Computed example of a mutant assay.
Amino acid sequence: MGKGRLIVLTGPSGVGKGTLLRSLLQRHPDLYVSVSVTTRAPRAGEVDGQNYYFVTRPQFERMVAQGELLEWAEFAGNCYGTPRKAVEEKIQQGKWVILEIELDGARQIRKTFPSALRMFILPPSLSELENRIRGRAQDSEDAITRRLTHAREEVSAADEFDIQIVNDNFEEALGKIEVALFKPAAAIC
């Protein structure tokens, strides 16, 4: 790949960012996904250092105070952030680093790393997003309402990003991400 690059992938919860990212990594294993730091407890099957770095809130606050995070945000009562050192080292090594982060974090990256390519994944509609979130059967009604309210705010910010991709057809959305990453700018539609 040669020159290192930072790529930011953002979009509302339930839009399919994680699924798109997993498929992108299967097709392009030379991409590197940054492992975030979080204050939330590990879920069943999650491995520290692989899925997240799990830390206490005081540890997280120390990392923020010492400038160890490129970006950070609080979401659903937990803090999430991107360790600066690992990302900068990978980029210096010529790696392409992908951050799958929330809107607040993406806005911070625009300031701390303005050369990053920032992509926003949109749902085909808010009603389809609601169907996807409900279909996961992971959240209470209150949590679904909070996610949808937050999603409306996020979707209204899509124009802040370099590229917006609607995930209405998985393969097409994945293809558009690949075009954005690997084709000349003139080829992006």
Rank of each mutant, 00 (worst) to 15 (best):
G175V: 04
L99Y: 11
F113S: 06
R134T: 04
Q26E: 13
R134M: 09
E71N: 10
S125R: 06
I163F: 12
V8T: 07
D142A: 13
G49T: 03
L126N: 12
L129I: 09
N78V: 00
Q138P: 00
K183S: 15
K111C: 01
S13A: 11
Y32N: 10
T38D: 03
D162T: 03
K95V: 04
E61C: 04
G49C: 10
K17F: 09
E46S: 00
T39I: 03
D48P: 01
K85G: 11
T82Y: 09
I98R: 07
R152I: 00
I101M: 04
R27H: 14
A76W: 01
Q50K: 12
V97C: 08
Y32W: 15
V166P: 11
I188F: 13
I121G: 02
V97S: 04
L20Y: 05
S156R: 15
L148S: 07
I188A: 06
I144F: 03
G16N: 07
N169S: 12
V33T: 14
F161T: 01
K95R: 15
V33C: 13
G4E: 02
D139E: 15
R118Y: 09
R5T: 03
F113C: 03
F161C: 06
T56K: 10
V47Y: 00
Q138R: 15
R57K: 14
G81H: 10
L103M: 14
R118T: 05
P124Y: 12
T39N: 03
T56D: 05
L25T: 02
N169W: 03
V47D: 02
I109C: 02
N78K: 10
S34F: 01
K17Q: 03
R107I: 04
R134I: 01
G81P: 11
D142M: 06
D30S: 15
V37C: 02
L31C: 06
G4V: 08
A157L: 10
I109M: 05
T149F: 12
